[in-house]
Design a protein around this nucleic acid. Structure first.
Lengths: 269, 269
DNA sequence: CGGGCGTTTGATTTTGCTCAACTAAGGTGG
DNA sequence: CCACCTTAGTTGAGCAAAATCAAACGCCCG
């Protein structure tokens, strides 16, 4: 039942083939066991309800078909499980189908840095291409699933279809962009600016999917959010409390209700 | 005369076709007017003394030739000049030939974040692929030059030659990796760790090129280094002084002489 | 109903920032 | 060629922001 609701929501046509396409995180979306554990698995992209999320509108049917051909399997990952780990041999990239993943970079000294929270429609594992070794852990934050895209096969069809090639290059470049944005956040912003920016980004991703941009539930703990934002969990908590005192939002635990997006934007820059 | 020395140094065979290949920054390399202002320009890669730096060893002669064909021009940029600016239409990526560039991300609120210092052999402009708009400024820190690689043409030959395609993908993935490393630095490290890590990274890049890893001159101001490391210029200066007091290095302005790399590594993690 | 985890909040300490003064070096123009 | 001026770098004092340490709360979940 929950399934139906979610599917229904996700099936809405994408506003465009391009922008940041992410799975919604409205109340229901993250309730309890989270996203539906679909087992439609290897039936290809042609009839995948998430098609519009990870395949751009520009592709011709034949191109989608070829793309679909190489996506032979999906992987189900339970909460806390990994899609891949740092050090693993790289063979595939992954298109997230349901749920939510975090990518964690573990430094030499054991320091953990969360480099991103990834929602349906995003591709992860791109950092493994360089030397064919995965450079981070991809950990499921809820029961999640992802389509496995063998990279060698993807390169092959990219050589045959310029539109697919371009799609791949855009994916790679987008990841570079995303990381640049995070670098700016970590390099130039204060704690309150970081959180405000993060929340607005989340809100934007949601509204883009046609969901409420005002009310949602975060999929991560304060500790994880702190790791991503480069601040301590207590500081994250204090900033939430401050925002609430300021009337910018109302929150209880991970549930967030944005009251004054403009006010948040003023803080975030 | 200075020219000859530099060329001589740079012409040394690369240790491998892969690692972080960067222009050396030993005393002479950054002295006064810096790198040679070469005007060999559009004679192609086949006889370019920098060939080994930006083209991997795996490519066949015919592939190098095809690659060379599309590199029709080089651009000379004087100190402070830009190779491209945020907002420019993206048409090409650039292979740095001589000198040094910084890439600067300007946030909405005008905050400047230096996202990287780039030396010969590196490719920049990859973040512009996504939406065909450059996302940052590439500013020359000395008189510098770069080969212009039209991206459409590169995609075309990447479709014809798998090895070139792979080379391109590795370049893109490497940039994602590089940024991940910086994110970890900004997200988890204290000021002294950041500087120690940066200096060792610099040192490593240098030794890779066959230069002294112990003695070099930094190409950037304290302010620029601070921007990159996410700390203020005064803090950078204090950390240098602290390291000197600790006997880890000896420095005067931008000249650095590393005395205890192990000690620096202990700090950097 | 009890235990444990995630979260909030407070008190204190530490780190790095801000403001400010001073020094050194390089370039310019008389 | 020297005096001046600008810019980069160093250093110190005081301050603000965030980390750390510590305690208590609430809420799932078994």
């Amino acid at each position: 039942m929950n399934h139906v609701v979610e599917c229904d929501v996700l099936i809405r046509p994408a506003v465009s083939g391009d922008g940041p396409l992410h799975k919604a995180m409205t109340g229901s979306a993250f309730d309890r066991h989270g996203f539906l554990a679909d087992n439609v698995s290897s039936s290809g992209c042609m009839h995948c309800p998430f098609q519009h999320v990870c395949i751009p509108a520009q592709l011709e049917p034949i191109e989608i078909l070829r793309f679909s051909d190489i996506v032979r399997s999906t992987r189900q990952v339970k909460e806390g499980g990994t899609l891949y780990r740092s050090g693993d041999v790289f063979t595939s990239i992954y298109a997230i189908r349901t749920g939510c993943f975090k990518t964690v970079i573990v430094g030499k000294a054991g320091q953990e840095q969360i480099s991103g929270f990834h929602l349906p429609g995003e591709f992860i594992g791109l950092d493994g291409i360089f030397d064919a070794i995965q450079a981070c852990d991809a950990v499921a934050m809820q029961a999640s699933s992802a389509c496995v895209i063998p990279f060698g096969a993807l390169e092959k069809i990219a050589r045959e279809y310029p539109a697919i090639q371009r799609h791949l290059h855009r994916m790679l470049s987008r990841e570079i962009r995303r990381e640049s944005t995070v670098m700016t956040l970590l390099g130039t912003m204060s704690a309150d600016q970081r959180l405000a920016t993060f929340l607005l980004n989340m809100s934007e991703r949601l509204s883009y999917m046609g969901h409420s941009s005002m009310k949602f539930k975060l999929p991560m703990t304060r500790d994880e959010l702190g790791s991503y934002l480069g601040i301590k969990l207590e500081t994250v908590s204090r900033m939430f409390s401050r925002f609430q005192r300021m009337g910018l939002l109302s929150n209880k635990g991970r549930h967030v209700f944005i009251l004054d997006p403009k006010g948040l934007a003023d803080i975030g820059g």
